Computed example of a mutant assay.
Amino acid sequence: MDKNNEIRKGRHCLYDLKAHLVFVTKYRYNVFTDEHLKRMEKIMRDVCSDFGCELVEFNGETDHVHLIVSYPPTTQLSTLINSLKGVSSRLLRKEYPDLRKRYWNNTKLWSPSYYAGSYGGTTTEQIKQYAQNQNRPH
């Protein structure tokens, strides 16, 4: 994809579909450090790639993350979200067993709810700035 041209091409269509996603930890526990967020970004980038999507922006704080995802019209957003949350929860609980015991009771990382919004009236840069300005832990 050409970074300067936000219109993507599918086999039979042109599209510019982006979603701003927010996932919060179960019970809004303050779980994440910068190390966790770096690993989570890699995991979520890989999941997006598997779906033919692009993770445009990622950032977070100790209890939630923001993602901006560009996705094709063939991808069902709820399926992508379930995969993003499921894979990241499973891998982070596996890779950080000390946090699993302390915060996630061996079962859940994310709250079952999430925010998903499109942003037709806002530029990608404005949404990116919002995501970048999160109070990321050090």
Rank of each mutant, 00 (worst) to 15 (best):
Y27S: 12
H36R: 02
K38I: 07
Y130K: 10
M40N: 07
F51Q: 03
P137I: 02
E61Q: 12
E35K: 13
K101A: 14
L84N: 08
R93M: 15
D63Y: 06
E57K: 15
N4K: 15
R136I: 01
Y130H: 14
G117I: 03
P97G: 10
T123G: 12
R11N: 11
M40E: 11
R45S: 10
T75R: 03
N106G: 06
D16L: 01
M1Q: 08
Q129K: 11
Y96I: 07
V24W: 00
H64I: 03
N133E: 04
H138N: 10
K26N: 09
F58Q: 04
M1T: 07
S49W: 13
S89H: 05
L21Y: 02
Y27G: 05
H20P: 15
Y96D: 13
T79I: 06
T122C: 04
T33E: 15
L84V: 09
L21T: 08
H64Q: 08
S118A: 07
L80N: 08
G52M: 09
P112E: 08
G117E: 10
G120M: 02
D50A: 12
R45N: 08
H36L: 11
K18E: 06
N4L: 13
S88F: 13
M40P: 01
N135P: 01
V31C: 14
R136Q: 04
